[in-house]
């Protein structure tokens, strides 16, 4: 006798309930088992269960249990999986290719070329010798403790993912700034991407792609990190001074002239802030992505956890911090230069 028998009796559904298999379809839960062995305790009003799927299943065996829900979702996903990967596989193949090549390039380039090149890049975007010295010093320190290869792997992955995030995110942000309706549709999606726990991204991806393919972690990182650059591009373009836009219109600029000549340049500080955030978030995700075979410092962190190698975990963690500081300072320096060029 279950609490909610009366609902099905009242609705005259008793026959449907007992109809097929009489509870045989639903697997037995531990609680059911306990109830069967011991004497069912007397129920008081305090024990009244919420009319959940499981509680209703107790009363009526034909009613699905809640585990049917998750199982149904799983089955549904598995059903469309083949079709989905048939479409997604070739589409995302360039990502695998880019990641493999970047990893190869960053690792095969000897350190005595790589470190000076990185220093030059930092010099070009920041124009600050202090920062260059810091970056060169950091890489030298990482190399000295033999973490150079791992750091380069991480850097290669971030490089590819950040470039793709910007290449996709900026146009999406521009489209959002132009259409309120598109913005309204995108914001919930972006909110979800941003709040979904990073591990959750990995689950469907593991089903879709093979764990040995680089694009698996590439997609996870891009989905997680693309949000800020989209948001800030949209915001930046919407924040461009109305009067300047009006002036652009008044002098007969075309939409394209306005976009490239006025809106993007004036939104650049915000877009750069988005790029900075995107790089930081890819760095966070690259550690989690080591769970699905992403190489780099994250693997060492994972080793630290798995094998309880305290030293390895801590040092590689600090290495990630060092990379984060380098990337953050470099992009911030570039941002500051953009800001200085166009204060009002």
């Amino acid at each position: 006798m279950a609490t909610y028998d009366w609902i099905f009796d009242g609705l005259g559904l008793r026959q449907w309930c007992d109809g097929d298999g009489s509870g045989g379809s639903a697997p037995m839960s531990m609680a059911d088992l306990m109830n069967q062995t011991g004497n069912a305790p007397e129920r008081t009003i305090w024990d009244t269960p919420f009319p959940s799927m499981d509680a209703l299943n107790d009363a009526c065996a034909s009613f699905p249990q809640s585990r049917e829900l998750t199982r149904g979702l799983e089955r549904g996903f598995l059903d469309i999986k083949d079709a989905l990967s048939y479409v997604l596989d070739p589409l995302t193949q360039p990502l695998s290719w880019a990641l493999q090549n970047a990893l190869w390039l960053f690792q095969e380039t000897p350190w005595w070329i790589m470190i000076p090149v990185l220093a030059l890049v930092v010099l070009a975007i920041s124009k600050s010798w202090k920062l260059v010295a810091f970056v060169a010093g950091s890489f030298a320190a990482l190399a000295f403790i033999d973490y150079y290869d791992y750091a380069m792997q991480t850097l290669a992955i971030i490089f590819v993912c950040a470039v793709i995030c910007v290449a996709l995110g900026v146009p999406i942000g521009i489209a959002m700034s132009r259409s309120d309706r598109f913005q309204g549709g995108m914001i919930p999606v972006l909110d979800m991407l941003q709040t979904l726990p990073p591990f959750v991204y990995l689950i469907p991806l593991i089903f879709l792609f093979s764990v040995t393919e680089p694009k698996l972690y590439g997609i996870a990182i891009i989905l997680y990190a693309i949000v800020p650059v989209i948001r800030l591009t949209n915001l930046g373009i919407r924040l461009v001074d109305k009067e300047v836009i009006e002036a652009a219109d008044a002098f007969g600029m075309t939409k394209r002239q306005k976009l490239y000549g006025v809106q993007i340049p004036l939104a650049l500080p915000n877009i750069m802030a988005g790029v900075n955030q995107t790089i930081m978030m890819s760095l966070a995700m690259v550690v989690i992505a080591s769970l699905v075979s992403a190489p780099g410092l994250g693997v060492l962190v994972l080793r630290g956890i798995r094998n309880l190698e305290l030293g390895v975990g801590l040092i590689s963690g600090l290495g990630i911090v060092l990379l984060a500081v380098i990337l953050d300072r470099s992009t911030k320096a570039a941002l500051a230069r953009v800001n200085a060029a166009q204060k009002h």
Binding site: V244, A247, A250, P265
Partner: peptide, 17 residues
């Protein structure tokens, strides 16, 4: 707008970059 008219704005509306 290009050939026959031009406009001067209250807050100047110059392109800062």
């Amino acid at each position: 707008r290009r050939k026959q008219m031009s406009m001067v704005f209250q807050k100047f509306a110059l392109l800062p970059h």
